[in-house]
């Protein structure tokens, strides 16, 4: 193991377990990408605030409704997450984990989000089938390193009924790509070291794996630059 460390600075990812959904396939995808493109990766799935607080590269997944994972985070885990971000950690939110990054969710009443990105999570319009399940393509991609090597208009796998719909014009720069289901919505957003995708990159074939790889690269390049 020490041999490896001398050659590569081993990548480390901490996946925050907010108590919903199965995180094993996300961990598998991260390890696969780490092994293929980065010479290995240590992936920890955790609820431990100490592990979260000391992490440099975080992933916040989630499926289902907004409120359960929000309430799980509230308290020690959220404090740990904020402490890590303050110290310069990177964060990638996925699906409901992405939605939690915004100001507020309006699912079964209004629930405050983490407020890391500006916007409100609302239900997709009812003139299209909801939930939005399947492969949809991105448009209006921003020239962000998260998309390095991924052709514009690539397809990703979505499963959700709510999305960041109400993005104020002042928040435009945080929208990194849109997708359309009934209405255009923010499918990828980010500000500084906080990024997120409404779709599941871990289930989105080669395009999704590239995006995860780009995220790992961003987080760890910044790390070595410090």
């Amino acid at each position: 193991m020490t041999h490896g460390r001398q050659i590569y600075s081993a990548l480390e990812v901490v996946v925050i377990d907010a108590g919903v959904g199965n995180l094993d396939n996300l961990a598998r995808a991260l390890r696969h990408v780490g092994a293929q493109s980065h010479g290995g990766l240590q992936c920890r799935v955790t609820t431990d605030p100490r592990v979260i607080a000391s992490a440099k590269c975080l992933v916040l997944p989630g499926v289902g409704a907004f409120r359960p994972p929000r309430e799980t985070l509230r308290g020690e885990m959220e404090e740990a997450l904020r402490a890590a971000l303050e110290r310069g950690a990177w964060l990638l939110g996925i699906c409901v984990g992405f939605q939690l990054l915004f100001d507020r969710g309006e699912e079964f009443g209004s629930t405050d989000g983490l407020g890391l990105l500006p916007g409100v999570i609302r239900q997709l319009p009812d003139d299209v089938p909801v939930p939005h399940i399947g492969w949809n393509r991105l448009h209006d991609e921003n020239n962000h390193p998260l998309f390095a090597g991924i052709p514009n208009g690539s397809y990703f796998y979505f499963v959700h009924s709510f999305a960041p719909l109400a993005i104020a014009e002042s928040a435009e720069p945080t929208c990194l790509a849109r997708a359309t289901h009934g209405v255009p919505f923010t499918a990828v957003a980010g500000r500084d070291r906080i990024l997120g995708t409404q779709f599941h990159p871990e289930r989105s074939g080669p395009a999704g794996l590239s995006l995860l790889s780009n995220y790992l690269e961003l987080a760890h390049a910044a790390d070595s630059g410090n």
């Binding site: 299209v128 939005h132 492969w135 949809n136 448009h139 397809y155 359309t180 289901h181 009934g182 209405v183």
Partner: peptide, 10 residues
């Protein structure tokens, strides 16, 4: 004709 980029799945 609905406004969606969703594909049919195989």
């Amino acid at each position: 004709t609905t406004a969606t980029g969703l594909t049919s799945r195989i």
